[in-house]
Amino acid sequence: MLLCISGTNAASAASLSWRALGPDQREALAPLDQQWDTLPSVQRKRLLETAKRYPRLSPIQKQRYHNRLLKWSKLTPEQRNAAREKYRAFNKIPVKQREEVRKMVREQEARKAEDSGNSAPPAFQVR
């Protein structure tokens, strides 16, 4: 067991480069193609772990995954840790409360989407 763990940890930097990735991995991590090789290797390994499950995600989950990768990768390790803690804490609160928050956030997102839809002010667009 230990051997196997240290084996994965010792994966050489070369095998983490964008060019060395397989087609499945590249598809999953496509939004990061430009910055992949600049990311710390710890982060790349972590992302590769999540990418393993990409093929089994539902279409909407795949879309979310793609939309969020870039932002996620730009956070500092501290911010990512804080986010993980929050996510876990969120999933520990009673289901009822959790659903209330989910509902509120969904409503907010809907309003935001509506707003950005008409954020180009028609009155001032006249040429």
Partner: peptide, 28 residues
């Protein structure tokens, strides 16, 4: 081993955050 299990948990949380229907901003 402990480390290994923890790592797996982090990976799972990361995937969950990246695919949950709650937007990522809520946790960041």
């Amino acid at each position: 081993y402990w480390n290994h299990v923890q790592e797996q948990q982090i990976d799972e949380t990361d995937l969950a955050i990246l695919t949950d229907d709650m937007p990522i901003d809520v946790f960041v």
